[in-house]
Design a protein around this nucleic acid. Structure first.
Lengths: 227, 227
DNA sequence: TATATGCTTTGATTTAAGTCAAATTTCGTC
DNA sequence: GACGAAATTTGACTTAAATCAAAGCATATA
C-alpha cells in the first residue's frame, strides 16, 4: 500500500516496525485540499491530527480586526494539530492550505489506542512536541526581544543554514507571508529589505536573496538596531 | 517515604501505581534553592527535568543587552525543563527561583527508561507538553497581535477567572515580573495601570487589584487601543 | 496580447512604547 | 521603628513600526 511507504518516511513514525505502520495506515484518511482551503478553525473540536503529504499548510491566529500572525508553515512530512489530541478539546489556531495540498488525517481515538499499545510511538511524539516547544521559545524571544531587522536576519540565517550555509537562499513563501511569520506587515518588511540591500548586506532578486555579509546579519541578530 | 506522597499529587504522575511512584522516588534528587538562585542557563546540557515542590520558578530568555522576557512562572506541582529530555541537547532558556524553593530533579536516563516501561506516564507527559504548546500559542498571539493594554487586560481576566470570576485579584508576582511576562518594561506597565485606574476600569491597592469593569477589560482584549 | 488580480514597494503621517533620569514609595532587616 | 535597597511611579524625549494611500510590478487567464 502506498500510504505505508509515506508513513515510514515521516519523522514522527520513524523506527516503527512495519506491522505498526500498517495499523497506522488503516486509521488514516487522506484529504485533498485546494489552495486557500481551510482545514480547521480556531475553536473547532480537535478530532485528530494531521500530517502534510504534499504542499504547504499555514497555522495562524487572527486578531479581531483581521490581522494575521502566522505561527508555523508546515511542509511535507510534518505533523500539525497534535495539541488537541492530547490537551483535549479545541484547536487553538487556524489551519489553511497555502497551495494545492494533500494531508493525512489521524483520528484521535484510534491514535490514542495505538499509542497505548505502542510506547515507542509515544516517545516519537514527545520528541516532536518538545522540538516544537523549543521553536516557540525562539519565536517568543524574537517577537519580544528583537526588532524586525533582527528577526529577518535570523530568518535569513536560518534559511541559509538549512541549505548548509549557502550564500543564496530562496524564499519559499511570499513576502507577505514572511511578514506575518516575523510578526510584522508587508510594508515594514519591504522597507527593511530595501535598507539591507542598500547597505550591501543582501542582494534581492525577487524571491531569491544573496547573502553578501553573513557577519552583518549575525550582528543584527545579536545587537539589533542601526539599520 | 515523603517523596512518594508528593509525587502522587503531581499531575504528571497521576494514575501511576504505587510501585512505579516508588521507582520514581528513587531516581529523584531534591534541590533546595535560595531566592534568585539559578537552576540552569540557556545552552546548558539538559540532564533531566524538574518539578517544583515549593516556591516559584521563572523561565526566561535574555537579550544581549540584558532585557528579559519571561516565558513561564511555575508553581508547586508543575514540571519544567522537559524539552531537552525529549528534544535532545541543551536548555533553550534560563531558570531561576523567584523565592526560596524546593524542586525535584529527575535525571534524563532514568526517566526515559521509566517511560518506556510505562505508557501511561508517556501519555501524561504528552498532555503536559501539548498544554504548554497551547499556552505558547496564546502568548505568541498576544505578543504580536495585541498592544500592551490588551495583554494586561487579558492577564487580569485570566487571574480573575482562575478564582472563579472574583472581582478582586492579587498579583502574586511583582509588577516588574509581570511586565516581563507581558513582554514589556515596568515603566510602560505602570503607565497603563495608571490609565486604567483613571478611567475607572480597575482600582489598584498595591498588589491587589479590584476589577471595576470586566466589560472594559474584555473590550481591551477584543478591540485593543483607546486607553 | 490585454486585462484584471494579487503582490510589493514607496511616501507621508501617526502612534505606541521604549529610553533616560529622577522622584517616590514599599519592604526587608538590623 | 529606622535605615538602605529595591520596586514603582512620573516626566520629557526618541524611535521603531503601524497606518493610510497610492503607485508599480508580476502573473495568470481569458
Amino acid at each position: 500500500m502506498e500510504i505505508v511507504k509515506y508513513l515510514s518516511k515521516i519523522p514522527l513514525f520513524e523506527g516503527l516496525p512495519e506491522d505498526q505502520l500498517i495499523d497506522l495506515s488503516k486509521i488514516t484518511v487522506t484529504l485533498d485540499l485546494g489552495k486557500g482551503q481551510v482545514i480547521f478553525s480556531e475553536g473547532d473540536e480537535g478530532r485528530g491530527f494531521y500530517v502534510v503529504l504534499q504542499g504547504r499548510v499555514k497555522i495562524y491566529k487572527l486578531s479581531p480586526d483581521g490581522k494575521e500572525q502566522t505561527l508555523h508553515i508546515f511542509g511535507s512530512g510534518e505533523p500539525f494539530g497534535e495539541v488537541p489530541v492530547f490537551a483535549g478539546k479545541h484547536f487553538p489556531a487556524n489551519a489553511e492550505a497555502l497551495e494545492k495540498s494533500k494531508v493525512l488525517f489521524f483520528p484521535r481515538i484510534s491514535l490514542i489506542r495505538l499509542i497505548e499499545k505502542n510506547p515507542s510511538l509515544a516517545m516519537n511524539m514527545l520528541a516532536i512536541l518538545a522540538r516544537r516547544l523549543r521553536q516557540f521559545t525562539v519565536q517568543i524571544e524574537h517577537l519580544s526581544l528583537k526588532e524586525v531587522p533582527g528577526r529577518l536576519a535570523a530568518y535569513l540565517l536560518y534559511l541559509s543554514d538549512r541549505e548548509n550555509g549557502s550564500q543564496e537562499v530562496r524564499l519559499d513563501i511570499t513576502k507577505g507571508q514572511l511578514a506575518s511569520l516575523l510578526g510584522t506587515i508587508p510594508e515594514t518588511l519591504s522597507r527593511i529589505f530595501a535598507k539591507m540591500s542598500k547597505q550591501g548586506i543582501i542582494e534581492i532578486m525577487g524571491p531569491n536573496i544573496k547573502i553578501l555579509s553573513r557577519t552583518a546579519l549575525e550582528e543584527l541578530v545579536e545587537y539589533g538596531g542601526g539599520l
